[in-house]
Write a protein that binds this DNA or RNA. Structure first.
Lengths: 259, 259
DNA sequence: CGATTATTATGAAAGCAATTGAAAGAAAAT
DNA sequence: ATTTTCTTTCAATTGCTTTCATAATAATCG
């Protein structure tokens, strides 16, 4: 067992990655014995690797992320905070009036809203998200418009200058925006500049801009800011949002609603 | 059969998902026996998956969902002239050079071309067809651009003025166009004015325009013409095309190639 | 058709393993 | 020597699964 005398953390993680990709799965206990470190250490390793999307964490171990082909479908479907998003989705959908042109961005919360809009009529849904188009395929009474642009595989969204050009031509009654983080400063942020760039022009075109963020987003700040708190009309979140972060945002005059 | 000793919850759910997608339905009792866990555990699994919209819960089990994915898959299976289209697709794909921007319209023959382009690199595929985007999801080396516009459910294509606007902004090396009919006069036709209107502007933007039509299209004339024979550089068809119709088109100077 | 019976579902409680967070110790880097 | 990073221990927490009792649903029979 001590055939590998000492390994740097990085080397060990590399080895773990090889193992999980070779056999498809690893167990914390096995790894702990194999490398001669505590199980807590292995867990932090797995967590680190999971954060980089190099494997998928499970109870007691981890499994490989699978073949790159199905990667997107699985990753996007493995939603978290499902219940919270569902409640936020229902509340958000209720804000759209008949006849409205509704914008849904490429976020899982917007997808939740789409699910509640499916049964509606006389709605136009504008989006840059492939997932939302697919979700609305069997909603025959909803007119669906896609922005077009360059397809970004990681997010299943369309981005880039052509997306921008499309969005500068439409008028929208109400727009829903997910975010990676929300904080008093700098406001709403996301993880990719392209995604943020796709959201920014739409905001200006919406009579009403609604941010939809579950509790985990509060206080977080992503690399790419796309909207200040003052640009958002309504913020919908769930009631487990941290109170101090919410207060800081409300102090700037935001209308925060809990579901 | 149950040689798998212990499965992580995640793995088990993944397996259940595969089973339900493969056979269309699963029963709680079967799953419970197969995985060697209690029926209550299976129920929580099914509930979790149902919350993520990955399947639909029923009494005693679950049935597969994905009206989007499944429906489209069925539509694709209804294709006719599969073998001919495959041959045409291979020949068409061979015309695209590395580095090209390729346009594929929303026709089943273009979809056949997309399948042959998947393994290529350094290609940009521009399309207004949702099915082609989906086909190229797992072709990571191909950049995919979608025109955007209004979604037309019958053809799974994007059409309308926004589509038009997008297409006026791009330059394309080679474009492939399916058609409902081809004849010396009025040339290439389709069944819907919207579809025809989406094809017309692209034609002018392509250095090379290729019509891909199986034998059944010759001599047929649809309601909406979109290109004269003189606007087309190459016509690819299969060798069972009616000779007289082909001759009439060739007499106008067309380059007709058989596969 | 209604009543009975069998099957399936749901909720609560409990056991166990895995996880997380905090605090402190060890190793490496500056 | 000091800071930083990594690792461990320990306690508290969470998550998964089971059992059992009860409710709801489907199927069967009179």
């Amino acid at each position: 067992m001590s055939s590998l005398p000492i390994l740097y953390a990085e080397e060990r993680r590399q080895s773990i990655l090889e193992l999980v990709n070779r056999s498809g799965r690893v167990a914390v206990g096995d790894l702990s014995k194999r490398f001669g470190v505590s199980s807590v250490t292995i867990r932090t390793d797995l967590q680190t690797l999971a954060e980089q999307n190099l494997l998928v964490r499970t109870h007691g171990g981890a499994v490989s992320t699978g073949p790159a082909a199905a990667e997107m479908a699985i990753a996007l479907r493995r939603e978290r905070k499902v219940r919270e998003k569902q409640r936020i989705g229902r509340a958000g959908a209720a804000l759209a009036a008949n006849g409205d042109a509704v914008y849904l961005d490429s976020s899982s919360t917007s997808l939740a809203i789409a699910r509640f809009l499916k049964s509606r009529r006389l709605l136009t849904v504008i989006t840059n998200s492939l997932m939302i188009v697919q979700e609305l395929l069997d909603a025959p009474h909803i007119q669906v418009m896609l922005t077009g642009g360059s397809f970004q595989r990681e997010t299943a969204a369309f981005v880039g200058p052509y997306t921008h050009a499309f969005l500068n031509q439409v008028h929208i009654q109400i727009g829903f925006f997910g975010a990676h983080g929300i904080a008093a400063e700098p406001g709403l942020t996301d993880i990719s500049p392209e995604i943020a760039a796709a959201k920014r022009p739409v905001l200006k075109r919406c009579r009403q801009a609604v941010a939809v963020v579950d509790a985990s987003k509060w206080g977080r700040v992503g690399i790419a800011p796309f909207a200040g708190i003052d640009e958002i009309d309504i913020i919908i979140t769930d009631d487990s949002a941290p109170a101090d972060a919410v207060r800081a945002v409300e102090a700037m005059g935001a209308d925060v609603r809990f579901v």
